[in-house]
Amino acid sequence: MTGSQIFWYGSIASLIAGLATSIGAIPVFFFKKQLSEKSLDAFLGFAAGIMLAATMFSLIVPSINTGGITITVIGIIAGAVVLELFDTFSPHEHFLKGHEGPNIDVVKKVWLFVIAITLHNFPEGMAVGVSFGGGMIKNGIVVALAIGIQNIPEGTATAVSFLKAGYSKKQAFWWSFLTGVVEPIGGILGAALVVIMAPALPLFLSFAAGAMLYVISDEIIPETHSHGYERIATFSLIFGFLLMMVLDNALG
């Protein structure tokens, strides 16, 4: 596969995965009442399991196979540290955990939400983009499928969270849709990097894995363990992991 094909595969796949967020947001137009916290925790736990499996089997394993364990460890640490720096120094608002970062009053609450979601979705898009590097079409498809699947319940959860914040159903849908648009930006960057700097593919794969692991542990899992439904969130994560593991094996 040529460099231009890798770039377009990665860019288009990340766009499709990002747009899956809007599919998850559609149900808000039909809700007569808000989803329960139990349902949201189950949805997000399932999404976390899918992301975790995709990170392991389609990012970390290929990185080890092509670049060795040392490069993989370095990349994972680097990805996690970069996300931690963004998380620490960017003012943003978690839907459940509240405000983090500098207390800048002039930043409207809605933009705090948007920044938080951007921190979450950008590395996902980048993971899709880099996963097509080296002509690894199967890996790219698996990662894009995993993130697309997990974006559906995430889109629902995001839209419902906007409803809770007082936005209309239409506004909640469009804000959720826009959060998904961030992913192809990360996808384009990731795909471009692996084309321009092909020898560094193992590092890019592991960097994306580190960023994904950070998002799963710092963002998603704490959100699902804040309402007393830890057990259902945990088993939902396991089911999501198993589903993605089976799909990865079937596609392989």
Results as ranks from 00 to 15, higher is better:
34 Q>L: 15
34 Q>W: 01
35 L>E: 10
36 S>H: 05
36 S>G: 11
37 E>S: 12
37 E>R: 14
38 K>V: 01
39 S>C: 01
41 D>T: 14
41 D>H: 08
41 D>I: 08
41 D>F: 08
42 A>P: 00
43 F>Y: 15
45 G>Y: 01
47 A>M: 06
48 A>R: 04
49 G>A: 03
49 G>I: 03
51 M>P: 12
52 L>A: 14
53 A>V: 03
55 T>F: 09
55 T>C: 11
55 T>S: 09
55 T>M: 14
55 T>I: 04
58 S>F: 06
59 L>F: 05
60 I>P: 07
60 I>S: 09
60 I>K: 05
60 I>M: 12
61 V>H: 05
61 V>S: 11
62 P>G: 07
63 S>N: 10
63 S>C: 10
66 T>E: 04
66 T>S: 09
67 G>P: 02
67 G>M: 10
67 G>T: 04
68 G>A: 05
71 I>W: 02
72 T>P: 11
72 T>W: 04
72 T>V: 05
73 V>I: 14
73 V>M: 07
73 V>D: 00
75 G>D: 04
75 G>T: 02
77 I>W: 02
77 I>F: 14
77 I>G: 06
78 A>E: 05
78 A>L: 14
79 G>D: 10
80 A>Q: 04
80 A>C: 04
80 A>G: 11
81 V>M: 07
81 V>T: 09
82 V>H: 07
82 V>F: 14
83 L>V: 00
83 L>F: 05
83 L>R: 06
83 L>W: 10
84 E>W: 15
85 L>A: 06
87 D>F: 10
87 D>V: 01
88 T>H: 14
90 S>Y: 10
92 H>C: 00
93 E>H: 13
94 H>D: 15
95 F>H: 11
95 F>W: 07
96 L>W: 00
97 K>I: 13
97 K>F: 13
98 G>D: 04
98 G>T: 01
98 G>V: 03
98 G>E: 02
101 G>D: 03
101 G>I: 00
101 G>L: 01
102 P>F: 01
103 N>H: 15
105 D>F: 10
106 V>L: 08
106 V>A: 10
106 V>R: 12
108 K>T: 06
108 K>G: 06
109 K>S: 13
109 K>L: 15
109 K>A: 06
109 K>G: 12
110 V>S: 08
110 V>A: 07
111 W>E: 04
112 L>G: 14
112 L>Q: 09
112 L>P: 00
112 L>N: 12
113 F>D: 12
114 V>I: 15
114 V>M: 15
114 V>C: 06
117 I>L: 15
118 T>Y: 10
118 T>Q: 05
120 H>G: 08
121 N>I: 02
121 N>R: 09
122 F>V: 03
124 E>R: 12
125 G>Q: 08
125 G>P: 03
126 M>V: 12
126 M>W: 11
126 M>A: 14
128 V>E: 01
128 V>I: 12
129 G>F: 09
129 G>M: 10
129 G>Q: 11
129 G>A: 06
130 V>E: 00
130 V>T: 02
131 S>F: 08
